[in-house]
Computed example of a mutant assay.
Amino acid sequence: MDSAEAQLETFMARYLPGVAGTGRAAIKRMRARLPGCNALVYDNYNALAVSFSPDGTTRSGIVSIALYPRWVSLFFLHGARLEDPDHLLKGDGPAVRHIVLGSADDLDLPSVRDLIDRALDAADVKHDPARKGALVIKAISEVQRPRRPAKG
């Protein structure tokens, strides 16, 4: 396991086992689905996010997997401009939309696969499966919210 993989695993271990397991499985599936993309890791204030970028830059990210204390979401970084015939996407900001994942298996639902395909088609930088993607730790926030829900 290289140092970026080990560091990502350290970040994941801070979550409850169910959330961490869903996050690991979702990230693994997205890395397999988007082999030419870099997986950019952001251990942010609110969440641990892994964004998938076809050229390794933050601005070209297409989708991301984000872990929160109680759930994992699939984010579409330009989701506001996607057609969503099944009304799966949540959010009302100017760009980003998301789907809360019940499990990593949700990534294989036809309607979710269709949204991912639409996001890839609409991306400013096109996905090249022949490109060698990498896992890159991009940012680690010094101050973070707890990664597990408060007891009570």
Rank of each mutant, 00 (worst) to 15 (best):
S111T: 08
S51G: 13
S60R: 04
G56M: 09
A95C: 11
I99L: 15
W71Q: 15
V96G: 07
P54H: 10
A66I: 05
D105C: 12
Y68F: 05
F52A: 15
F75H: 13
V50K: 09
A104G: 01
K126R: 14
D106L: 02
L120H: 01
P54I: 01
A122F: 13
D84W: 03
A123E: 12
H78K: 06
L88C: 10
D121C: 14
P94T: 08
D106V: 01
I62Y: 05
V41T: 05
G36H: 03
D92E: 04
L74Q: 04
S53D: 00
V41G: 04
H127L: 08
F76V: 14
Y45P: 12
A80Q: 07
V50T: 07
D108N: 07
G36C: 03
P94C: 09
Y45G: 11
K90N: 09
D106I: 00
L34I: 15
H87C: 15
V125C: 11
G91Q: 09
A32S: 13
E83C: 02
D106W: 06
H127V: 09
L48E: 00
A80N: 09
T57G: 11
A32F: 14
K90L: 14
A32T: 12
L40I: 10
A95W: 01
P94F: 02
R29I: 03
D114M: 09
D108H: 05
P110H: 06
Y45K: 15
A47L: 01
D114A: 10
R29E: 08
D124Y: 15
L77E: 13
D117C: 08
A104E: 00
A119K: 08
D105G: 15
A104C: 00
R81M: 02
S60Q: 04
S111E: 12
L107N: 03
R113V: 05
S51P: 00
H78V: 11
V50I: 14
L107H: 07
I62L: 08
A32V: 13
D124C: 14
I62Q: 10
A26S: 10
F76H: 12
R33H: 04
G102Y: 11
L34V: 13
D105V: 05
A49S: 13
S103F: 01
L77Q: 12
G79C: 06
A32P: 05
G79M: 05
P85K: 11
Y45L: 12
D117E: 08
F52M: 14
E83W: 01
G79Y: 07
S111V: 06
I27Q: 00
A49E: 04
